[in-house]
Amino acid sequence: MSVMRRWAVPVVRRLGSGVLVLWGAATVSFLVLHLVPGDVVDTVLGPSTAATPELRERIRADYGLGDPLPVQYLRQLAGLLTGDLGRSYQQGLPVGDVLAGQIGPTVELALAATVLALLIAFVAAVATAGRGRAARAVASGLELLAVSVPSYWLGILAFTFLSYRFRLLPAAGDQGPAALVLPALTLALPIGGVLARVVRQELDEALARPFALTVRARGATERTVLLRHTLRHAALPVATLSGWVVGSLLGGAVLTETVFARPGLGRVLVTAVTSKDIPVVTALVLLSAAAFVVVNLLVDLAYLVIDPRLRTEGAGV
């Protein structure tokens, strides 16, 4: 089997299922809009807007509400394919424009938080795996604390001390990398806590497996066993949890962005849900689905990179 084929087949297969998921999400959002009782125009506008008859007529025309449902459905799909996410009539802007400036800060925050969470997880796990009971108890307790403490409270605590009392880091806004530190840390801590527990458990399991004895019998130090052999084994469950991590990041972004007064999709979502700006909410749902699809594709590829046993066609997965 050629290298190209080995990688092309799983990639194409997973891309195909990703497209199916996105199509499903678009279909569900279409159905919800049309199955919710009441006039579609009212749903699109939201409850608090007093719209002029001209605006109502415009919505009717934009959505083609006079056409049969299948035609409307196909038109919406076609619009999505060309990148047209619809229009927010509350803000009087295309949804694309509403989101455009906000994606960057959120992606920035999510990436920074992911890197931090992985760093926390692997450092904590490697430092304590295979160690005595005391070190593990301390690490385990700290992780439990990180997981249990609500992230917004952690955020408030962090900027109260670090920003107001000691003026070390800016508390709000998105000016420069320094402003990213606190929100990213707030978002990363609970995720890092969970991942650290998973990584350590996997490391401990791998350290007890027969191949670890072979490596030690070659004269390797415990650190070599950990870093060169078992760490790769521990990467597998982390990849598995990536879906959960993306969910936590999206959910956490809503709170973190609000607490730290950062721009971003989380804040857009809060505003849109509060004011029932349905086109924006729908677009965010589709965007989250797309994020999940992309991440899961990457995760599946990561599996193949990490574990050669899964590369054989028809085996595993």
Partner: peptide, 10 residues
Amino acid sequence: DALVSLDPLR
């Protein structure tokens, strides 16, 4: 048992 005594990922 060589199957489990060699690191399966290397």
